[in-house]
């Protein structure tokens, strides 16, 4: 579910996240979020399934909606990497400073991923996550 195309970071073997198996069955397995379906399309907005100009309220509502569907407590095994993407997307988009920086970097590179500053305090989710 975690595409190597967006993993510019680490050569770690993908670590299986083991979870105590959970409720509401395998609901999450029936569908895959946009980001996981199309490995190249990793824009943070598409992870949360919102438009690029979405308001803060819309982003928050979308995050909660996605969390209720993809949080490992709900969706069980295998959804952890998806939820980590959602979490990281939200961490950037819910913070107006980080969001502005992300928006401008998007415009700059034209792509949703690049090698981020590996030692900066603010770390890019693309390098941080998802492997």
């Amino acid at each position: 579910m975690c595409s190597t195309a967006i993993s510019t970071g680490f050569p770690f073997a993908p670590a299986p996240i083991r979870l105590t198996a959970r409720r509401r069955g395998a609901v999450a397995m029936a569908a895959t979020p946009a980001a996981a379906k199309a490995p190249g399309n990793t824009g943070l907005y598409s992870v949360l399934e919102v438009a690029e100009g979405a308001s803060m309220g819309e982003i928050k509502t979308a995050y909660r909606k996605m969390a209720k569907r993809w949080h490992p407590d709900v969706a069980g095994d295998g959804s952890a990497s998806v939820f980590l993407q959602i979490q990281q997307a939200y961490a950037v988009l819910s913070d107006s400073a980080k969001r502005n920086k992300y928006d401008s970097s998007m415009g700059h590179l034209g792509l949703g991923f690049r090698r981020g500053e590996r030692f900066g305090r603010v770390r890019r989710w693309e390098t941080d996550q998802c492997w």
Partner: peptide, 27 residues
Amino acid sequence: VGICMDVDTSNVLRVYGGAHLLRTQQA
């Protein structure tokens, strides 16, 4: 030397570590 930490929803902490060549991503 890469160190990775992972906390799952059951609050289990796992730490991963290993070395790789500079700028090669090769473990």
